[in-house]
Write a protein that binds this DNA or RNA. Structure first.
Lengths: 108, 108
DNA sequence: CGAATAGTCAACCAAATGGTTGACCTTTCG
DNA sequence: CGAAAGGTCAACCATTTGGTTGACTATTCG
């Protein structure tokens, strides 16, 4: 499975997109990620494995708690691919980056 | 299934992404879309149904030929969602559009 | 008309997906 | 130590997915 396959497949599920949105706010423990969902912890844990394999999140165990962290860089590949379609054609990425800097929109 | 589910699921397959890339060049008949692939016409036809249901392409029958056409607008939803992650945070879409106009990157 | 072309449909199959439950391991806490 | 908390693993199940083949419909061409 290519990276793109894994990334798009991971994004093709409302539960997983919700998880990513939650992690956008802050890093979270597996149990806390699972709390809002009406499914078992094991099911959520599986979703986290899929997100991890796609590179969209990373998981790090500290003590008995496993922390989940967003890895937005992984979406770059998908964005790069998807942006070759749409109304934006042949966008100059350097100029775009400069624009983001100027607008103060680029992340630290 | 939400629109996003359908769109991301449709994109999570190399064959379908290839088809979209082919259609970026030009509109094509189903038989011609299928030609480069080592699978049956029926299989490709199924992929085209999935792409159609996701809104990523449209199909129009003229005579006995069914033409496939890219509908890049459908990816907007996906791009909008996906761009809330990554190094771009809280991007000002109006400013972005103005930037594209200025750079001459926006489509006619 | 009859034959070829374009494409879909239906039945089938193997593998993957998304969920469950129960057993299990590891770490922390009293 | 013993019990509870945090998670994973394995077995199981129903549904979906991606492919096949063969029959079929509709259109065009000689």
């Amino acid at each position: 499975m290519s990276d793109l396959d894994a990334i798009f497949a991971a994004l093709a599920d409302e539960t997983r997109r919700s998880i990513l949105a939650m992690l956008l706010e802050d890093d979270m423990a597996v149990t806390d990620v699972a709390e809002p969902f009406e499914m078992s912890l094991a099911a959520v844990s599986k979703h986290l494995v899929i997100l991890t394999k796609a590179g969209l999140i990373s998981q790090e165990k500290r003590g008995r708690v496993k922390w989940c962290k967003l890895r937005p860089e992984a979406m770059r590949e998908a964005v790069t691919w998807i942006e070759s379609f749409g109304e934006i054609e042949g966008i100059d990425l350097d100029a775009f980056e400069a624009f983001l800097q100027a607008e103060g929109l680029a992340k630290a």
